[in-house]
Design a protein around this nucleic acid. Structure first.
Length: 750
RNA sequence: UGGGGUAUCGCCAAGCGGUAAGGCACUAGUUUUUGGUACUGGUAUUCGGGGGUUCGAAUCCCUCUACCCCAUCCA
């Protein structure tokens, strides 16, 4: 677990500490209506990860409440994904459909409580009655049905006496709720459909909002973690469990931001479109962000998990750069995988002065990968190199073979250019070169300096392989649909040549093709006759090698000006108050504004003022600290009163306590409702303003932090705050901060 | 438009009143028979804007702005 916990783990820890739950139970609850993608992987990592970190467990639950879209094919894909990532679910796979009977019983209970009713308006009417975001909705006339009638109707719904859409069961909550989700949400609808699991036993199915919270409760889930778009649903979640009076411990819902990655799409709908339109070869197309796609492409589970860990968990909508994903797979494979030579775009090279043949022993791993293993590389007069590794007219900074620049054949000899053979169109079809017999790798005495060592294969022994070079599926960073498809997202190279050992010995399934990237033997199409490799990801290229600098960043716009909206005007009485505050009491206009506009605040202020004539100080504390408390409370709910605030301010005015301590005392007042004077006395919070007491503490701090002293004296004046903070901490906040500031500054500058 | 959220480097993301973490990307250098890797350095005088409180504010208060979610018998 990383040092910095995400907010979910923070919540879990607090709950555990408070003894809210005996055990952490989470769940990964996908709907089996599509293939899981990397966004699901994030959720899997969060849910299974948290369970693992806190010795709890995580259920895999198929949220199968909609028989018309779900299929067992998808549950298999979902199970695969979790397993492939290396997580284990508790017990067997759960299904919401397993709880249909219990959920149904809860529905009846709700009806009996008068908290649910059968509604019989059609869809269109229902939409109208729901109102809009700004207007309250109206309840349908059916909401008045008696419990008996509701019970009867609901029973008949269950028995299949009605057609789809004829009736629904609704929770009776509030048609005027500002949260639209709370306007009598649907609990059950009629669906005469075959359920892939429950078969035909049901013709009513619970809605997500009803089934999910109850399923969580039934499974003993403690932390129900979902994505941000369910924030509004949280109120129903709580309503159902609370209204049913389900006993603690019960689950609570927490939301995090779903994953977005640029140059791809993540919604099930868009993914399905691509698959159905045949733009990709299927759900496991290596260009897709599906788990099946990444798996087929050659990504490792570790890399996906590292990626999910790396991006963190928060509540801000975000779009992660694919480069971050690519980093994790390179990083993972770098230390694991054998390096072999494959020439993607072969150019024949004849070594004019070499006539024998030999086998060269070469390590599978570079010096910095602590793994063992070698293979034999055949070498002879005729070899192939990559077309890109020769240039007749090299640009500045080109490191490979040119008419005037020798290059090393990796693990073998250095060669120098002799002649380029061209066809009628002027295309180079062959290079003639000379090798240097004394330059053999490991026993080089030639003294020739080369800038690069390139991959090659021996012509006769090389195996022909198919290489599928994948690039991002979309050309735009935030693709909308098929129109944004990158036409070059797949290049099939049928004529690549690979060193024989890879095919004959099959040392592994994943390789680094030297200087090209990481590749994976396609698990589906690879055969001995037609070996197929998928490009997982290219090697990182330093900018100097990159052909055209894709310099995008068109330097920042000149900082867009922000136009402030208009502030609501004050009413007449508020204005009068404001004037009084600013003119008579000499308050700052901001503070006066806050007070004048808030009736609770202004009357609280007036009351405090009546017991202590210190208008500015009181105004400050009322407009800041008291205002915070009054945000969600009424005056009579406060644990303290205006008189006590006046008392507190008095102590500040008399310099009995420092402004820092005020915060502390105030917190205490909020918590306990005790008198400020008593708090100060009980905790001994009286301000220390004696330099004789403070000075030695400062000396000590200075002595303990020589580095920072040096930095400070070197010009980092921000560090003054650090020292002041340290001194204040050492005195429990009691030292007079103004004095500390002065003394520290003096001491530091001494 | 009512309600619910979110804003910290190009992209993620810590931070919860006392020195603006870290990763990716970028960049300079060292090592290197991969233009890879590894290593070393450089990258936010400032936290969406403006005010206020405080000795001290990314953190507390006020206000404005931008973006996301909610009016499926989807989940």
């Amino acid at each position: 677990m990383s040092e910095h916990k995400d907010f979910l783990r923070t919540i879990v820890e607090e709950d555990l500490k408070a003894g809210k739950y005996k055990e952490v139970v989470t769940r990964f609850p996908p709907e089996p209506n599509g293939f899981p993608h990397i966004g699901h992987a994030k959720s899997i990592c969060i849910n299974f990860g948290i369970a693992k970190d806190y010795d709890g467990h995580c259920n895999l639950r198929m949220d199968d409440t909609n028989p018309t879209t779900e299929d067992t094919r998808y549950v298999e894909a979902l199970k695969d994904a979790v397993q492939w990532l290396g997580f284990e679910w508790d017990d067997s796979v759960r299904f919401t459909s397993d709880y249909f009977a219990q959920i149904h019983a809860y529905a009846i209970e709700l009806i009996k409580m008068g908290k649910a009713y059968v509604d019989s308006v059609d869809e269109e009417q229902m939409r109208e009655l729901r109102g809009t975001v700004t207007e309250a909705g109206k309840r349908s006339k059916y909401a008045q049905r008696s419990v008996e009638e509701n019970l009867d109707l609901f029973e008949r719904m269950k028995n299949g006496e009605f057609k789809d859409g004829e009736h629904v069961l609704r929770a009776k909550i509030d048609m005027g709720a500002a949260n639209m989700k709370l306007r009598d949400p649907l609990l059950y609808r009629i669906r005469h459909a075959h359920h892939f699991r429950a078969g035909d036993t049901w013709c009513i199915y619970p809605m997500y909002d009803f089934a999910h919270c109850l399923s969580d409760y039934i499974e003993g889930v403690s932390h129900s973690i979902c994505t941000l778009e369910f924030e509004n649903n949280r109120d129903i979640y709580n309503w159902v469990l609370d209204t049913l009076g389900l006993e603690a411990p019960r689950p609570y819902q927490h939301e995090f931001a779903r994953l977005g990655i640029n140059y791809t799409v993540m919604s099930k709908r868009k993914l399905l479109e691509l698959v159905e339109a045949g733009v990709v070869s299927g759900w496991d197309d290596p260009r897709l962000p599906t788990i099946a796609g990444y798996k087929r492409r050659g990504y490792t589970p570790e890399s996906i998990i590292n990626f999910c860990d790396g991006i963190g968990i928060a509540k801000a909508n975000s779009m992660v750069d694919v480069a971050q994903l690519e980093f994790t797979i390179r990083d993972d494979l770098n230390t694991k995988v054998a390096r072999v030579m494959c020439v993607l775009d072969p150019l024949k090279v004849t070594i004019t002065n070499y006539d024998e043949s030999e086998d060269i022993e070469a390590s599978f791993y570079p010096h910095d990968v602590p793994k063992e293993g070698t293979r034999k590389l055949p070498f002879s007069k005729e070899i192939y190199i990559d077309r890109a590794d020769f240039s007749e007219t090299p640009e500045k900074g080109y490191f490979r073979l040119t008419p005037t620049q020798a290059v090393r054949l990796k693990y073998a000899y250095i060669i120098t250019f002799e002649e380029a053979i061209k066809d009628a169109d002027g295309n180079i079809v062959e290079i003639k070169a000379a090798y240097h017999p004394d330059s053999k790798s490991g026993e080089d005495t030639s003294g020739i300096k080369v800038k690069s060592a390139i991959q090659w294969v021996e012509a006769k022994m090389a195996k022909n392989v198919e290489v599928r070079v994948y690039d991002r599926l979309f050309k735009s960073e935030a693709p909308e649909g098929v129109e944004d498809i990158n036409p070059d997202s797949l290049k099939v190279i049928k004529t690549a040549l690979i060193e024989p050992a890879v095919i004959t010995d099959k040392p592994d399934v994943r390789f680094q093709f030297e200087r090209e990237g990481y590749f994976y033997a396609d698990p589906v199409d690879y055969t001995d006759e037609n070996p197929v490799f998928n490009k997982i990801v290219g090697l990182k290229e330093s900018s100097s090698k990159k052909k055209k600098a894709p310099q995008v960043a068109p330097k920042a716009e000149p900082k867009k000006e922000q136009i402030d909206g208009e502030v609501v005007a004050m009413s007449e009485s508020e204005q009068a108050l404001f004037d009084k505050y600013t003119v008579e009491l000499k308050l700052g206009s901001m503070v006066a504004d806050i007070l004048a506009r808030d009736e609770k605040l202004s009357s609280f202020y007036a009351e405090a003022l009546s017991s202590l004539n210190s208008p500015v100080s009181i105004a400050n504390i009322v407009s800041n600290d008291v205002a915070r408390e009054l945000k969600e409370k009424e005056v009579n709910e406060l644990s303290f009163d205006a008189k006590q605030i006046a008392e507190l301010v008095k102590m500040v005015d008399e310099e009995l306590i420092s402004s820092k301590i005020v915060k502390q005392v105030f917190e205490e007042m909020v918590k306990s409702g005790d008198n400020p004077t008593d708090i100060v006395e009980a905790k001994g919070l009286v301000q220390i303003s004696d330099p004789a007491v403070i000075a030695p503490i400062i000396d000590e701090i200075i002595e303990k932090n020589p580095d920072n002293v040096e930095k400070f004296r070197g010009g980092n004046t921000k560090l003054l705050g650090f020292f002041v903070g340290q001194v204040l901490k050492a005195t429990g906040g009691k030292a007079n901060p103004k004095m500390v500031n002065e003394l520290v500054a003096k001491a530091l500058n001494a």
